[in-house]
Nucleic acid binder design. Structure first.
Length: 534
DNA sequence: CGGGAGTATAAAT
DNA sequence: TATACTCCCG
Protein backbone atom coordinates (compact mmCIF):
# COMPACT_ATOMS: atom_id res chain seq x y z
CA UNK A 1 0.00 0.00 0.00
CA UNK A 2 1.20 3.44 -0.80
CA UNK A 3 4.77 3.99 -1.88
CA UNK A 4 6.79 0.85 -1.95
CA UNK A 5 9.28 0.57 0.91
CA UNK A 6 9.05 4.29 1.61
CA UNK A 7 8.48 4.03 5.34
CA UNK A 8 11.37 1.67 5.75
CA UNK A 9 13.53 4.00 3.71
CA UNK A 10 12.50 7.01 5.78
CA UNK A 11 13.28 5.29 9.06
CA UNK A 12 16.01 7.77 10.07
CA UNK A 13 13.45 10.55 9.92
CA UNK A 14 10.79 8.83 11.96
CA UNK A 15 10.32 10.18 15.46
CA UNK A 16 8.31 8.47 18.15
CA UNK A 17 5.72 10.88 19.46
CA UNK A 18 2.66 10.91 21.62
CA UNK A 19 -0.54 12.33 20.24
CA UNK A 20 -0.84 14.79 23.11
CA UNK A 21 1.73 16.78 21.20
CA UNK A 22 -1.29 18.04 19.25
CA UNK A 23 -3.40 19.07 22.21
CA UNK A 24 -5.59 21.99 21.26
CA UNK A 25 -5.07 21.32 17.56
CA UNK A 26 -7.12 19.84 14.78
CA UNK A 27 -5.83 16.50 13.54
CA UNK A 28 -6.97 14.68 10.40
CA UNK A 29 -7.72 10.98 10.37
CA UNK A 30 -7.61 8.69 7.41
CA UNK A 31 -10.83 6.88 8.24
CA UNK A 32 -9.94 3.95 6.12
CA UNK A 33 -6.91 2.94 8.14
CA UNK A 34 -8.84 2.76 11.38
CA UNK A 35 -11.85 1.12 9.81
CA UNK A 36 -9.61 -1.52 8.45
CA UNK A 37 -7.77 -2.10 11.69
CA UNK A 38 -11.04 -2.20 13.54
CA UNK A 39 -12.43 -4.74 11.13
CA UNK A 40 -9.61 -7.05 12.10
CA UNK A 41 -11.35 -8.14 15.25
CA UNK A 42 -14.55 -9.05 13.47
CA UNK A 43 -13.41 -9.94 9.99
CA UNK A 44 -15.13 -13.29 9.93
CA UNK A 45 -18.45 -11.79 10.94
CA UNK A 46 -18.11 -9.14 8.28
CA UNK A 47 -17.11 -11.56 5.55
CA UNK A 48 -19.85 -14.02 6.35
CA UNK A 49 -22.28 -11.20 6.89
CA UNK A 50 -23.17 -12.86 10.18
CA UNK A 51 -26.04 -11.52 12.21
CA UNK A 52 -24.01 -11.23 15.34
CA UNK A 53 -23.43 -7.89 16.92
CA UNK A 54 -19.76 -8.59 17.01
CA UNK A 55 -19.80 -7.50 13.43
CA UNK A 56 -20.07 -3.91 14.55
CA UNK A 57 -16.99 -3.97 16.71
CA UNK A 58 -15.02 -1.95 14.22
CA UNK A 59 -17.21 0.99 15.14
CA UNK A 60 -16.24 0.63 18.78
CA UNK A 61 -12.62 0.43 17.82
CA UNK A 62 -12.90 3.62 15.83
CA UNK A 63 -14.77 5.57 18.47
CA UNK A 64 -12.35 4.41 21.11
CA UNK A 65 -9.62 6.17 19.21
CA UNK A 66 -11.73 9.22 18.59
CA UNK A 67 -12.27 9.45 22.31
CA UNK A 68 -8.58 9.05 22.90
CA UNK A 69 -7.98 12.15 20.81
CA UNK A 70 -10.76 14.04 22.54
CA UNK A 71 -9.31 13.08 25.86
CA UNK A 72 -6.14 14.90 24.89
CA UNK A 73 -8.13 17.90 23.76
CA UNK A 74 -7.53 17.19 20.10
CA UNK A 75 -10.21 17.97 17.54
CA UNK A 76 -10.52 14.97 15.21
CA UNK A 77 -11.37 15.56 11.57
CA UNK A 78 -12.30 12.27 9.97
CA UNK A 79 -11.75 11.96 6.24
CA UNK A 80 -13.29 9.18 4.16
CA UNK A 81 -12.41 8.00 0.70
CA UNK A 82 -14.78 8.76 -2.11
CA UNK A 83 -14.71 7.44 -5.64
CA UNK A 84 -11.68 5.93 -7.22
CA UNK A 85 -9.61 7.48 -9.92
CA UNK A 86 -8.91 5.64 -13.15
CA UNK A 87 -5.18 5.09 -12.76
CA UNK A 88 -5.71 3.25 -9.52
CA UNK A 89 -7.91 0.68 -11.15
CA UNK A 90 -5.17 -1.88 -11.71
CA UNK A 91 -4.09 -1.77 -8.07
CA UNK A 92 -7.66 -2.01 -6.92
CA UNK A 93 -8.41 -4.96 -9.10
CA UNK A 94 -5.31 -6.68 -7.77
CA UNK A 95 -6.45 -6.15 -4.20
CA UNK A 96 -9.95 -7.25 -5.00
CA UNK A 97 -8.61 -10.45 -6.48
CA UNK A 98 -6.45 -11.17 -3.47
CA UNK A 99 -9.38 -10.70 -1.17
CA UNK A 100 -11.48 -13.05 -3.22
CA UNK A 101 -8.90 -15.83 -3.15
CA UNK A 102 -8.42 -15.39 0.57
CA UNK A 103 -12.13 -15.50 1.05
CA UNK A 104 -12.38 -18.72 -0.92
CA UNK A 105 -9.55 -20.27 1.04
CA UNK A 106 -11.21 -19.19 4.25
CA UNK A 107 -14.49 -20.79 3.28
CA UNK A 108 -12.66 -24.02 2.57
CA UNK A 109 -10.98 -24.03 5.95
CA UNK A 110 -14.29 -23.30 7.54
CA UNK A 111 -15.87 -26.30 5.91
CA UNK A 112 -13.01 -28.41 7.16
CA UNK A 113 -13.76 -27.11 10.61
CA UNK A 114 -10.49 -25.25 11.01
CA UNK A 115 -11.88 -22.05 12.42
CA UNK A 116 -8.52 -20.58 13.37
CA UNK A 117 -7.09 -20.91 9.91
CA UNK A 118 -10.32 -19.59 8.50
CA UNK A 119 -10.42 -16.46 10.59
CA UNK A 120 -6.83 -15.73 9.75
CA UNK A 121 -7.72 -15.88 6.09
CA UNK A 122 -10.85 -13.85 6.61
CA UNK A 123 -8.68 -11.10 7.98
CA UNK A 124 -7.08 -10.84 4.60
CA UNK A 125 -10.42 -10.92 2.89
CA UNK A 126 -12.16 -8.04 4.64
CA UNK A 127 -13.37 -5.25 2.51
CA UNK A 128 -14.49 -1.96 3.91
CA UNK A 129 -17.75 -1.15 2.19
CA UNK A 130 -19.30 2.27 1.78
CA UNK A 131 -22.06 1.07 3.99
CA UNK A 132 -19.64 0.36 6.82
CA UNK A 133 -18.30 3.86 6.40
CA UNK A 134 -21.83 5.15 6.45
CA UNK A 135 -22.57 3.41 9.72
CA UNK A 136 -19.60 5.18 11.19
CA UNK A 137 -20.70 8.48 9.72
CA UNK A 138 -23.99 8.24 11.54
CA UNK A 139 -22.19 7.83 14.82
CA UNK A 140 -19.83 10.68 14.04
CA UNK A 141 -22.82 12.88 13.36
CA UNK A 142 -24.49 11.97 16.60
CA UNK A 143 -21.27 12.69 18.44
CA UNK A 144 -20.72 15.93 16.56
CA UNK A 145 -17.38 14.80 15.21
CA UNK A 146 -16.29 16.66 12.14
CA UNK A 147 -15.94 14.53 9.03
CA UNK A 148 -15.78 14.85 5.28
CA UNK A 149 -16.04 12.34 2.46
CA UNK A 150 -13.41 13.20 -0.12
CA UNK A 151 -14.55 13.17 -3.73
CA UNK A 152 -11.73 10.76 -4.54
CA UNK A 153 -8.67 9.92 -2.49
CA UNK A 154 -8.86 10.68 1.22
CA UNK A 155 -5.09 11.12 1.19
CA UNK A 156 -5.35 14.03 -1.19
CA UNK A 157 -8.04 15.65 0.92
CA UNK A 158 -5.96 15.19 4.07
CA UNK A 159 -2.82 16.58 2.49
CA UNK A 160 -4.82 19.55 1.26
CA UNK A 161 -6.23 20.20 4.73
CA UNK A 162 -2.76 19.92 6.22
CA UNK A 163 -1.68 22.75 3.94
CA UNK A 164 -4.38 25.15 5.16
CA UNK A 165 -4.00 27.55 8.04
CA UNK A 166 -5.22 26.04 11.28
CA UNK A 167 -7.74 28.83 11.68
CA UNK A 168 -9.00 28.16 8.18
CA UNK A 169 -10.20 24.57 8.54
CA UNK A 170 -6.63 23.33 8.39
CA UNK A 171 -5.25 20.39 10.35
CA UNK A 172 -1.95 20.24 12.17
CA UNK A 173 -1.20 16.59 11.43
CA UNK A 174 -2.64 13.48 9.82
CA UNK A 175 -3.02 10.05 11.38
CA UNK A 176 -2.82 7.26 8.82
CA UNK A 177 -1.06 4.05 7.84
CA UNK A 178 -0.61 5.05 4.25
CA UNK A 179 2.73 6.38 3.07
CA UNK A 180 1.00 8.10 0.16
CA UNK A 181 0.48 11.09 2.41
CA UNK A 182 4.16 11.86 2.18
CA UNK A 183 3.99 11.74 -1.59
CA UNK A 184 1.06 14.17 -1.45
CA UNK A 185 3.31 16.49 0.52
CA UNK A 186 1.58 16.28 3.88
CA UNK A 187 3.63 18.27 6.39
CA UNK A 188 3.11 16.20 9.53
CA UNK A 189 2.09 12.57 9.30
CA UNK A 190 1.66 10.13 12.16
CA UNK A 191 1.91 6.42 11.42
CA UNK A 192 1.21 3.38 13.56
CA UNK A 193 -0.66 5.18 16.28
CA UNK A 194 -1.59 2.69 18.98
CA UNK A 195 -4.46 2.73 21.39
CA UNK A 196 -2.55 4.81 23.92
CA UNK A 197 -1.71 7.51 21.46
CA UNK A 198 1.88 6.58 20.72
CA UNK A 199 2.86 6.83 17.10
CA UNK A 200 5.67 7.49 14.67
CA UNK A 201 5.84 10.85 13.01
CA UNK A 202 7.47 12.26 9.92
CA UNK A 203 7.71 16.01 9.44
CA UNK A 204 8.42 16.69 5.81
CA UNK A 205 10.17 20.02 6.29
CA UNK A 206 12.51 18.43 8.80
CA UNK A 207 13.35 15.80 6.23
CA UNK A 208 14.33 18.44 3.72
CA UNK A 209 16.25 20.54 6.24
CA UNK A 210 18.24 17.86 8.04
CA UNK A 211 21.94 17.68 7.23
CA UNK A 212 24.32 14.82 7.91
CA UNK A 213 21.77 12.08 7.67
CA UNK A 214 21.39 9.25 5.23
CA UNK A 215 19.49 9.07 3.04
CA UNK A 216 19.92 12.76 2.42
CA UNK A 217 17.09 14.94 1.22
CA UNK A 218 19.01 18.15 1.39
CA UNK A 219 17.62 20.70 -1.00
CA UNK A 220 14.89 18.33 -2.05
CA UNK A 221 11.69 20.06 -2.99
CA UNK A 222 8.24 18.58 -2.53
CA UNK A 223 8.21 17.96 -6.27
CA UNK A 224 11.44 16.00 -6.24
CA UNK A 225 10.25 13.98 -3.28
CA UNK A 226 6.98 13.16 -5.04
CA UNK A 227 8.91 12.26 -8.17
CA UNK A 228 11.01 9.86 -6.15
CA UNK A 229 7.87 8.29 -4.73
CA UNK A 230 6.33 7.74 -8.14
CA UNK A 231 9.55 6.22 -9.49
CA UNK A 232 9.71 3.80 -6.57
CA UNK A 233 6.26 2.51 -7.41
CA UNK A 234 2.88 3.73 -6.18
CA UNK A 235 -0.74 2.71 -6.41
CA UNK A 236 -1.12 4.66 -9.63
CA UNK A 237 1.91 3.27 -11.42
CA UNK A 238 4.20 0.29 -10.84
CA UNK A 239 7.89 1.00 -10.97
CA UNK A 240 10.17 0.13 -13.83
CA UNK A 241 11.65 -3.33 -13.23
CA UNK A 242 14.85 -2.97 -11.29
CA UNK A 243 13.94 0.40 -9.83
CA UNK A 244 13.05 0.57 -6.17
CA UNK A 245 13.08 3.28 -3.58
CA UNK A 246 16.87 3.32 -3.25
CA UNK A 247 17.52 3.80 -6.93
CA UNK A 248 14.67 6.24 -7.28
CA UNK A 249 16.23 8.33 -4.55
CA UNK A 250 19.67 8.19 -6.08
CA UNK A 251 18.41 9.19 -9.53
CA UNK A 252 16.45 12.12 -8.18
CA UNK A 253 19.37 13.23 -5.99
CA UNK A 254 21.70 13.08 -8.95
CA UNK A 255 19.64 14.86 -11.60
CA UNK A 256 17.48 17.08 -9.41
CA UNK A 257 14.79 17.29 -12.01
CA UNK A 258 12.04 14.78 -12.73
CA UNK A 259 12.06 15.23 -16.51
CA UNK A 260 15.80 14.76 -16.62
CA UNK A 261 15.50 11.58 -14.60
CA UNK A 262 12.95 10.31 -17.10
CA UNK A 263 15.28 10.91 -20.04
CA UNK A 264 18.19 9.20 -18.31
CA UNK A 265 15.96 6.29 -17.41
CA UNK A 266 14.86 5.97 -21.00
CA UNK A 267 18.48 5.70 -22.06
CA UNK A 268 19.52 3.28 -19.35
CA UNK A 269 16.46 1.08 -19.13
CA UNK A 270 15.20 1.50 -22.64
CA UNK A 271 14.13 -2.07 -23.19
CA UNK A 272 12.53 -2.68 -19.81
CA UNK A 273 10.74 0.64 -19.76
CA UNK A 274 7.10 0.44 -20.81
CA UNK A 275 6.24 2.47 -23.88
CA UNK A 276 3.96 4.89 -22.06
CA UNK A 277 5.90 5.08 -18.83
CA UNK A 278 6.83 8.73 -19.20
CA UNK A 279 3.27 9.83 -19.69
CA UNK A 280 1.99 7.57 -16.96
CA UNK A 281 4.63 9.03 -14.70
CA UNK A 282 3.53 12.57 -15.47
CA UNK A 283 -0.07 11.67 -14.75
CA UNK A 284 0.69 9.96 -11.46
CA UNK A 285 2.95 12.84 -10.52
CA UNK A 286 0.20 15.32 -11.37
CA UNK A 287 -2.33 13.46 -9.23
CA UNK A 288 -0.08 13.87 -6.20
CA UNK A 289 -0.03 17.61 -6.76
CA UNK A 290 -3.33 18.57 -8.31
CA UNK A 291 -5.81 15.88 -7.29
CA UNK A 292 -9.39 17.06 -6.98
CA UNK A 293 -10.53 17.62 -3.42
CA UNK A 294 -13.58 19.10 -1.71
CA UNK A 295 -13.48 22.68 -0.54
CA UNK A 296 -15.74 23.07 2.49
CA UNK A 297 -15.97 26.81 2.08
CA UNK A 298 -17.17 26.98 -1.49
CA UNK A 299 -18.87 23.59 -1.14
CA UNK A 300 -17.42 22.52 -4.44
CA UNK A 301 -14.53 20.61 -5.93
CA UNK A 302 -11.19 22.15 -6.53
CA UNK A 303 -7.61 21.10 -7.04
CA UNK A 304 -5.13 20.61 -4.22
CA UNK A 305 -3.22 23.53 -5.61
CA UNK A 306 -3.82 25.81 -8.59
CA UNK A 307 -3.18 24.10 -11.90
CA UNK A 308 0.14 24.71 -13.58
CA UNK A 309 0.27 26.66 -16.81
CA UNK A 310 0.62 23.54 -18.93
CA UNK A 311 -2.30 21.78 -17.28
CA UNK A 312 -4.46 24.87 -17.58
CA UNK A 313 -4.30 24.45 -21.31
CA UNK A 314 -5.83 20.99 -21.11
CA UNK A 315 -9.47 20.31 -21.74
CA UNK A 316 -11.77 19.13 -18.97
CA UNK A 317 -11.74 15.69 -20.43
CA UNK A 318 -7.97 15.52 -20.36
CA UNK A 319 -8.01 16.37 -16.68
CA UNK A 320 -10.34 13.54 -15.77
CA UNK A 321 -7.39 11.53 -14.50
CA UNK A 322 -7.26 13.91 -11.53
CA UNK A 323 -10.75 12.74 -10.71
CA UNK A 324 -13.59 13.85 -12.99
CA UNK A 325 -15.38 17.10 -12.19
CA UNK A 326 -18.57 16.72 -10.18
CA UNK A 327 -21.38 19.29 -9.91
CA UNK A 328 -21.23 21.11 -6.61
CA UNK A 329 -24.55 19.85 -5.31
CA UNK A 330 -23.42 16.28 -5.84
CA UNK A 331 -19.98 16.94 -4.45
CA UNK A 332 -21.39 18.32 -1.23
CA UNK A 333 -23.92 15.51 -0.92
CA UNK A 334 -20.99 13.14 -1.13
CA UNK A 335 -18.82 15.17 1.20
CA UNK A 336 -21.53 15.34 3.82
CA UNK A 337 -22.08 11.64 3.71
CA UNK A 338 -25.51 11.57 2.12
CA UNK A 339 -24.57 10.08 -1.20
CA UNK A 340 -22.62 6.89 -1.73
CA UNK A 341 -19.67 7.96 -3.86
CA UNK A 342 -19.27 4.47 -5.27
CA UNK A 343 -22.62 4.24 -6.97
CA UNK A 344 -24.07 7.71 -6.56
CA UNK A 345 -27.07 6.46 -4.68
CA UNK A 346 -28.51 8.04 -1.61
CA UNK A 347 -27.05 6.25 1.39
CA UNK A 348 -30.17 5.72 3.37
CA UNK A 349 -32.04 4.08 0.57
CA UNK A 350 -30.97 0.71 -0.46
CA UNK A 351 -27.32 -0.05 0.19
CA UNK A 352 -26.82 -3.37 1.85
CA UNK A 353 -28.31 -1.98 5.00
CA UNK A 354 -31.72 -3.43 4.48
CA UNK A 355 -30.16 -6.78 3.94
CA UNK A 356 -28.16 -6.54 7.10
CA UNK A 357 -30.85 -5.44 9.41
CA UNK A 358 -33.79 -7.49 8.38
CA UNK A 359 -32.51 -10.85 9.57
CA UNK A 360 -30.97 -9.28 12.61
CA UNK A 361 -34.27 -7.94 13.72
CA UNK A 362 -36.13 -11.12 13.02
CA UNK A 363 -33.72 -13.37 14.82
CA UNK A 364 -33.04 -11.63 18.06
CA UNK A 365 -35.77 -9.46 19.36
CA UNK A 366 -34.72 -7.96 22.62
CA UNK A 367 -36.87 -5.19 24.05
CA UNK A 368 -34.37 -2.54 23.13
CA UNK A 369 -34.28 -3.73 19.61
CA UNK A 370 -38.00 -3.71 19.37
CA UNK A 371 -37.92 -0.06 20.26
CA UNK A 372 -35.42 0.44 17.54
CA UNK A 373 -37.63 -1.35 15.08
CA UNK A 374 -40.58 0.76 16.00
CA UNK A 375 -38.43 3.80 15.49
CA UNK A 376 -37.42 2.50 12.15
CA UNK A 377 -41.01 2.11 11.15
CA UNK A 378 -41.72 5.74 11.82
CA UNK A 379 -39.68 7.56 9.29
CA UNK A 380 -40.70 10.91 10.62
CA UNK A 381 -38.59 10.46 13.69
CA UNK A 382 -35.55 8.94 12.13
CA UNK A 383 -35.46 9.94 8.54
CA UNK A 384 -32.66 11.68 6.88
CA UNK A 385 -33.36 12.60 3.35
CA UNK A 386 -30.53 13.08 0.96
CA UNK A 387 -29.33 16.64 0.86
CA UNK A 388 -31.35 17.65 3.86
CA UNK A 389 -29.06 19.51 6.15
CA UNK A 390 -31.72 20.32 8.67
CA UNK A 391 -32.21 16.77 9.77
CA UNK A 392 -28.53 15.98 9.88
CA UNK A 393 -27.28 14.79 13.17
CA UNK A 394 -30.70 14.65 14.73
CA UNK A 395 -31.42 11.06 13.94
CA UNK A 396 -29.53 9.30 16.63
CA UNK A 397 -30.42 11.77 19.32
CA UNK A 398 -34.11 11.28 18.78
CA UNK A 399 -33.75 7.59 19.05
CA UNK A 400 -34.30 6.40 22.62
CA UNK A 401 -32.04 3.45 22.05
CA UNK A 402 -29.21 5.49 20.75
CA UNK A 403 -30.06 8.62 22.64
CA UNK A 404 -27.73 8.10 25.54
CA UNK A 405 -24.45 7.86 23.83
CA UNK A 406 -22.45 4.89 24.91
CA UNK A 407 -19.40 6.71 23.74
CA UNK A 408 -19.69 9.08 26.62
CA UNK A 409 -19.29 6.16 28.96
CA UNK A 410 -16.43 5.05 26.88
CA UNK A 411 -14.75 8.39 27.25
CA UNK A 412 -14.98 8.12 31.00
CA UNK A 413 -13.49 4.67 30.99
CA UNK A 414 -10.80 5.92 28.72
CA UNK A 415 -9.89 8.65 31.11
CA UNK A 416 -9.06 5.94 33.58
CA UNK A 417 -7.24 3.95 31.01
CA UNK A 418 -4.77 6.59 30.12
CA UNK A 419 -4.38 8.15 33.51
CA UNK A 420 -2.25 5.57 35.28
CA UNK A 421 -0.83 2.24 34.24
CA UNK A 422 -2.09 0.59 37.40
CA UNK A 423 -5.71 1.04 36.58
CA UNK A 424 -5.31 0.13 32.97
CA UNK A 425 -6.17 -3.50 33.37
CA UNK A 426 -9.21 -2.64 35.39
CA UNK A 427 -10.28 0.00 32.94
CA UNK A 428 -9.91 -2.32 30.02
CA UNK A 429 -12.68 -4.34 31.54
CA UNK A 430 -14.88 -1.34 31.85
CA UNK A 431 -14.35 -0.53 28.25
CA UNK A 432 -15.95 -3.70 27.02
CA UNK A 433 -19.55 -2.65 26.79
CA UNK A 434 -21.96 -5.32 27.72
CA UNK A 435 -24.80 -3.79 25.84
CA UNK A 436 -24.26 -2.84 22.27
CA UNK A 437 -27.19 -0.86 21.01
CA UNK A 438 -28.63 -1.69 17.66
CA UNK A 439 -27.64 0.80 15.14
CA UNK A 440 -30.57 1.27 12.91
CA UNK A 441 -29.80 3.18 9.82
CA UNK A 442 -33.04 4.80 8.93
CA UNK A 443 -35.74 2.58 7.79
CA UNK A 444 -34.75 -0.68 6.24
CA UNK A 445 -38.34 -1.50 5.43
CA UNK A 446 -39.17 1.65 3.65
CA UNK A 447 -37.28 0.66 0.58
CA UNK A 448 -39.04 -2.61 0.17
CA UNK A 449 -41.12 -1.73 -2.79
CA UNK A 450 -42.91 -4.66 -4.31
CA UNK A 451 -40.78 -6.98 -6.33
CA UNK A 452 -37.58 -5.68 -4.93
CA UNK A 453 -37.29 -7.96 -1.99
CA UNK A 454 -37.16 -11.03 -4.09
CA UNK A 455 -34.62 -9.58 -6.41
CA UNK A 456 -32.47 -8.75 -3.46
CA UNK A 457 -32.71 -12.18 -1.95
CA UNK A 458 -31.57 -13.66 -5.19
CA UNK A 459 -28.34 -11.83 -4.94
CA UNK A 460 -27.92 -12.79 -1.32
CA UNK A 461 -28.41 -16.46 -1.95
CA UNK A 462 -25.86 -16.57 -4.66
CA UNK A 463 -22.59 -17.12 -2.92
CA UNK A 464 -20.59 -15.72 -5.73
CA UNK A 465 -22.56 -12.60 -6.28
CA UNK A 466 -20.76 -10.61 -3.65
CA UNK A 467 -20.34 -7.92 -6.17
CA UNK A 468 -23.96 -7.62 -7.02
CA UNK A 469 -24.63 -7.56 -3.32
CA UNK A 470 -22.29 -4.76 -2.50
CA UNK A 471 -22.71 -2.83 -5.63
CA UNK A 472 -26.23 -3.40 -6.78
CA UNK A 473 -26.36 -2.84 -10.45
CA UNK A 474 -28.78 -1.06 -12.68
CA UNK A 475 -32.32 -2.35 -12.36
CA UNK A 476 -33.32 -2.21 -8.76
CA UNK A 477 -31.26 0.68 -7.71
CA UNK A 478 -32.41 2.91 -10.49
CA UNK A 479 -36.03 2.16 -9.98
CA UNK A 480 -35.80 3.33 -6.48
CA UNK A 481 -33.70 6.25 -7.23
CA UNK A 482 -36.41 7.77 -9.31
CA UNK A 483 -39.17 6.93 -6.96
CA UNK A 484 -37.42 8.32 -3.90
CA UNK A 485 -35.36 11.09 -5.13
CA UNK A 486 -38.25 12.96 -6.62
CA UNK A 487 -39.31 13.85 -3.13
CA UNK A 488 -36.56 16.30 -3.09
CA UNK A 489 -35.89 19.36 -5.08
CA UNK A 490 -32.56 19.99 -6.64
CA UNK A 491 -32.94 16.50 -7.85
CA UNK A 492 -32.82 17.20 -11.49
CA UNK A 493 -29.15 17.75 -11.23
CA UNK A 494 -28.75 14.47 -9.45
CA UNK A 495 -30.62 12.64 -12.15
CA UNK A 496 -28.77 14.33 -14.89
CA UNK A 497 -25.52 13.45 -13.30
CA UNK A 498 -26.57 9.92 -12.61
CA UNK A 499 -27.53 9.57 -16.20
CA UNK A 500 -24.15 10.72 -17.35
CA UNK A 501 -22.57 8.28 -14.95
CA UNK A 502 -24.74 5.52 -16.32
CA UNK A 503 -23.75 6.32 -19.84
CA UNK A 504 -20.12 6.38 -19.03
CA UNK A 505 -20.02 3.22 -17.00
CA UNK A 506 -22.55 0.87 -18.46
CA UNK A 507 -22.33 2.04 -22.03
CA UNK A 508 -26.04 2.61 -22.17
CA UNK A 509 -26.98 -0.98 -21.61
CA UNK A 510 -30.41 -2.20 -20.66
CA UNK A 511 -31.62 -1.41 -17.22
CA UNK A 512 -34.23 -4.08 -16.76
CA UNK A 513 -32.81 -6.98 -14.86
CA UNK A 514 -30.29 -7.41 -12.17
CA UNK A 515 -27.24 -7.77 -14.31
CA UNK A 516 -24.33 -9.82 -13.25
CA UNK A 517 -21.14 -7.91 -13.70
CA UNK A 518 -19.04 -9.28 -16.47
CA UNK A 519 -15.54 -10.14 -15.46
CA UNK A 520 -14.28 -9.85 -18.98
CA UNK A 521 -15.09 -6.22 -19.40
CA UNK A 522 -12.55 -4.13 -17.56
CA UNK A 523 -14.46 -0.91 -17.71
CA UNK A 524 -17.50 -2.57 -16.30
CA UNK A 525 -15.71 -4.33 -13.57
CA UNK A 526 -13.74 -1.43 -12.25
CA UNK A 527 -16.72 0.66 -11.53
CA UNK A 528 -17.83 -1.94 -9.04
CA UNK A 529 -14.94 -1.32 -6.78
CA UNK A 530 -15.90 1.22 -4.28
CA UNK A 531 -12.98 1.57 -2.02
CA UNK A 532 -10.57 -1.21 -1.84
CA UNK A 533 -7.57 -2.15 0.08
CA UNK A 534 -6.12 -5.32 1.47
C1' DC B 1 28.47 -6.20 -3.01
C1' DG B 2 24.11 -3.62 -3.13
C1' DG B 3 19.59 -3.58 -4.19
C1' DG B 4 15.38 -5.53 -5.84
C1' DA B 5 12.04 -9.13 -5.78
C1' DG B 6 10.12 -12.88 -3.71
C1' DT B 7 8.93 -15.59 0.42
C1' DA B 8 8.31 -16.53 5.49
C1' DT B 9 6.61 -15.37 9.76
C1' DA B 10 4.92 -12.68 13.54
C1' DA B 11 1.96 -9.25 15.28
C1' DA B 12 -2.38 -7.24 16.31
C1' DT B 13 -7.00 -7.78 18.08
C1' DT C 1 -0.02 -6.33 6.99
C1' DA C 2 4.88 -5.30 7.93
C1' DT C 3 9.18 -6.69 8.67
C1' DA C 4 12.97 -10.14 8.11
C1' DC C 5 15.32 -13.12 5.55
C1' DT C 6 17.05 -15.22 1.14
C1' DC C 7 18.10 -15.49 -3.57
C1' DC C 8 19.60 -13.69 -7.74
C1' DC C 9 21.16 -10.19 -10.99
C1' DG C 10 24.25 -6.46 -12.66
Amino acid sequence: MGIKDLLKFMKPYIEPIHIKKYAGKRVGIDAYSWLHKGAYSCSMEICLDANSEKKLRYLDYFMHRINLLKHYNITPVVVFDGGSIPCKAATQYERYRKRQTNRELAMEKLKEGDVNAASELFQRAVNITPFMAYQLIQILRSESIEFVVAPYEADAQLAYLSGLETEKDGIAAVITEDSDLLAYGCQATIFKMDRYGNGEEIILDKVFDTVDRRPSFQNFSKELFTGMCVLAGCDFLPSIPGIGIVKAHSFVSKYRNNERVLSVLKLEKGSQMPEDYCNSFREAFAVFQYARIYDTNTKSLKHMKPLSQTLLGSSDKDLDFLGPEIPSSIASAIAEGNLNPANMEAFDRFSSSGLDLKPLIKDHCTPKKVVAIVQAKHPSSCFVGPFSNETRGVVMKQNPVLGESKYIHEALALQKLVSSPEVREEAKEAIVWSDIPVRISKNPFKIEAKGMAEEISISVEDENSIMSLEFPDNGISKKRKHQEINLDQGVTEVEKFQESVDKRTSSGKGRGKLNKPKMSNQNTIFKFFSRVQV
